[in-house]
Amino acid sequence: MAVRALVLTGFGINCDHETADAFTRAGAVAERVHLNHLVAAPERFEAFHILAIPGGFSFGDDVASGRILANRLRYKLGGPLQAFIASGKLAIGICNGFQVMVKLGMLPYFDGAFSQEVTLAGNDSNRYEDRWVHLAVNAASPCVWTRGLEAIETPVRHGEGKFIPRDAATLARLEAQGQVVVRYATADRAPAGGVYPINPNGAIGDIAGICDPSGRLFGLMPHPEAYLDRTNHPQWTRKALPAEGSGLRLFRNAVAYARERLV
């Protein structure tokens, strides 16, 4: 049986095609599904092993990025979503999808309940920017998606990506449980130390992405689905690079995990 990935669409989500392409390249059967299709038939969730909330501008980032879509998921699909998570399946939120997961409380999902513990605020620069960053992967993280990876290169493309935890205790708990998965770093994986543009948004602790305690739910601001092929890299014309972009490895990890455990 194939690994099946559900890629959410609708309401201004706009990275759904390339996110579906990433899962397809990784060996899954990817299906783009409009949110209202799911709301009308939540049982469709059960047939999937992986949920992806792609990047984009759901509801125009109006009020706050990700907020309105997060609320819609909470009010209209909260139960099925929790059942999906409880059954050991995987989820990823990228950029706007990460904002949605955080504001829904699907991350960090400390105690298995939707509760917002962190946020993604306006960039310190107050500007939306598209620029490539280096991510250092936390080897101690249980994150399924980044297994075996040390570093990832991807672009960030956001105006509201500054990671802020509720308080010091929240940050400490995230770190203690290995839930901080990727941090903005220099090319040789040294911490960005908050320095712009290595850390492009002023994120606390240079945090670019976090997972839930199990490592199955993962969200990040940068776009791994934007680096599937060598020619996506901004310097591919001047560097010897592998044919496959490092972004694709995240999707391969998830599909491999699903194939072993869920299919």
Partner: peptide
Amino acid sequence: RMYDHEVQGGSVLKPFQGE
């Protein structure tokens, strides 16, 4: 740089290039 120049995943040559 404030324009998203690579959404849709097909970017090959970007507006800015070099080291």
